[in-house]
Every structure is written in structure tokens, then in C-alpha cells.
Amino acid sequence: MDLPTIVKRTALYFAVAVVVVIAVFPFYYAIITSFKTGTQLFEVNYFPTSFNLENYQSVLGGRHFIRNIGNSIFISFVTVVAALFLAITASYALARVKFKGRGLLLMTILGISMFPQIAVLAGLFELVRFLGIYNTPWAMILSYTIFTLPFTVWVLTTFMRGLPIEIEEAAIVDGATPWIIITKVFMPLMWPALVTTGLLAFIGAWNEFLFALTFTVSETTRTVPVAIALISGMSQHETPWGAIMAASVIVTVPLVLLVFVFQRKIVSGLTAGGVKG
């Protein structure tokens, strides 16, 4: 390697290091803060100084945090299953059957995914009250459909269009009904797309805040983001930062692990939702 190349490589690695540090630092800092208690919190340290699990014990032991995690898991899981179930059949129809107004329908579905959630809040509030599901997980499961379903339909339709038509023709020749085609022919081929969309829908539901804040009143029915947002001390000057950081780390670690395991799938899902959209 000649000198300019070495300089270039060094600059490249330096730039990469800067980007990674900026991306990861807040999470890293939350972790080291979560291990501090008492007056240690008020000293600024760039590297870990203590390893004290007290904050984790107080978060997991006290109040309703475990219950909140349970709520979040239940809501996200049911939301994903419902969205995938509704989207698989719909995307088959949208990708493979020609009918009038298909393009318009697809555009409408994409349009709904861009809805500002606040614009439907009043109407959803009325609906949730009417159905008697206010302050229950079902309020969130119902309302999250507004962003998980359009996205799932859109990505699965794009994916299904890419599958070879011959497979389907062979099945039709064998006398398979559309339902058989979907469940027996397409489903096995669609696992990658289902995992990707399911994962993104799960993350979306797990992170949602506006609906969860509005449709819950008691501490036991809150989801994790609402619980974290509303953790407070005795007064404004007593914000329990250690506990907040511990709670933040607890709910973020599973997501970070998902990101590292499914990195490729997540990226392909994001780009399918964006680039081809």
C-alpha cells in the first residue's frame, strides 16, 4: 500500500468509528447509568464505574413494570398475528388477481399508512368507548391495525408479485382452489417475507405511544413506553434517572438483539416498504 491509500483507509475507519460511537453512545450511557445509585448518578463518567443491580431490582420488583412488559408483549404479538392473517389473503388478491380499481386500492392502502394518527384519535376514542374496550389491551390491538395492516399488505403484495407465476399455474391445473394455493403453495415460500413484516410490525407496536397513552388510565394496563414516560419521583427534582435507565435498558435489549440477529431481514423489509413504494 502506498501512502495516500493508507491515509484514505485510516480516514475511512476513523469516519466509521465516529458514526458507530454516535449511534451507540446513548444506549451505552444508559447502561452504565443504570448500574449507578445514589450520589454516583451525579458524577459524570464516560466509562463504567460501578455495577449495582439495585435499579433493576427496584424496577422489576416494584409497581407494575412486569405487568406492563406482559401487556406490551401480548398487544404486539396479537397485533402482528392479526395483521399477517388479514394481509396474506389480501395481498394474494392484490398481487395475483386482476380486477378493476386495483391500483387505486393499493394507493389508498399506502395513503392510510401515512395517516397522521392524531387525525383519527377522536373517532377512535369514540369507537373504543363504544366497544367497551377502553383501558384494555384490545383498544391498542384494534388501533395499531391502522399502521401495521397497510404496511404488511404493501410489503407482502410486493413480495408475492415477485414469486414465479408458473408455480401457481401448475396448482391451478391440478385443480387447487385459491385458498389451497395460498395456504399450501404460497405460504411455504413466503416465510422470509412474513418474518420481515412480522418483525417490523412487532417493533412498531412495541414502540407505539400516542394511542397507548390515550386509551389507558390505570398503571396495570399501560404498555412499556407509557410506563417509562410516566415514571416519576416525588418532585421534578427527584426524577429517578437510575430506575428510568434500568427500565429503558430492559425494554431495549430484546430489540437490539433482534436487530443483530435479523439485520438483513429488517433492512430488506424497510427498503421494500420504501424503495419500491
Binding site: 449511534a23 431495549t252 430489540l255
Partner: peptide, 11 residues
Amino acid sequence: ILIPWAIPTIV
């Protein structure tokens, strides 16, 4: 670099 994207906004 996906970490900031995956962390819940509230967190």
C-alpha cells in the same frame, strides 16, 4: 447504526 432506529422513541 440500526440501534437508534430500533430503540423506542420514548426510551
